[in-house]
Amino acid sequence: MTTKKFMMVNRKAPYGTIYAWEALEVVLIAAAFEQDVSLAFLDDGVYQLKKGQQTKGIEIKGFEKTWGALEDYDVTQLYVARESLEERGLSAEDLTVPVEVLSRADIGKLMEEQDVLLSF
């Protein structure tokens, strides 16, 4: 199978819309087909990785724990925009998995290197 470089560009907060969950499902599918998958978290997308999500009260399945499975899928390239974190009063310590914090410009360079960009 041909391997392509896929990047999911996540810009939406979790739970308010279905986008964040859909992105995660696509990541798992692409990774199951052994593609080179990376994720970029920009704008409200950084909220997806916030620690301590307790979704019982809104009766929606939470997916904070699922980020921990990405390593099993060999998905280890998680990039988070520094500007987006700072604007929201967050830092890498607030996030549930290890990530690489980069400037938006550096994430832009990584986007240029991809074969496929998927926007969520």
Binding site: A32, T66, D72
Partner: peptide, 15 residues
């Protein structure tokens, strides 16, 4: 229980 997903075959095999 740990990850809230059922793993794909390749991942299951490895794990």
């Amino acid at each position: 229980n740990e990850f809230q997903i059922a793993p794909a075959v390749r991942v299951l095999t490895k794990a």
